[in-house]
Amino acid sequence: MIARARFALNAAAAVLMAGLVLVTCIDVVGRYLFDSPLGGAFELTQVLLGALVFVALPLTTAAGAHVEVDLLVPLLPQAMVRVLGWLGGIVTAAVLLYFAFRLIILTQDHLAVGTRTAALGLPMWVLGVIGVASCCIAAVIAMVRRPT
Rank of each mutant, 00 (worst) to 15 (best):
L71N: 02
L71F: 10
L72N: 06
L72V: 05
V73S: 07
P74C: 03
P74S: 09
L75F: 13
P77G: 07
P77A: 04
Q78C: 09
A79N: 10
M80V: 10
M80K: 12
V81C: 08
V81S: 10
R82V: 13
R82P: 07
V83H: 06
L84F: 02
G85Q: 04
G85C: 03
G85W: 00
W86K: 15
W86D: 12
W86E: 09
W86Q: 13
L87R: 01
G88Q: 01
G89W: 00
I90G: 12
I90M: 13
I90R: 09
I90F: 07
I90T: 09
V91P: 01
V91I: 12
V91Y: 02
V91F: 05
T92D: 05
T92H: 03
T92W: 01
A93E: 01
A93D: 01
A94F: 02
A94R: 02
V95P: 02
V95G: 04
V95T: 04
L96S: 03
L97A: 11
A100S: 14
F101E: 12
R102H: 07
L103A: 15
L103H: 11
L103R: 09
I104D: 13
I104V: 15
I104W: 13
I105N: 05
I105G: 13
I105H: 11
L106W: 08
L106I: 04
T107Q: 05
T107D: 09
T107H: 11
T107W: 04
Q108V: 14
Q108N: 14
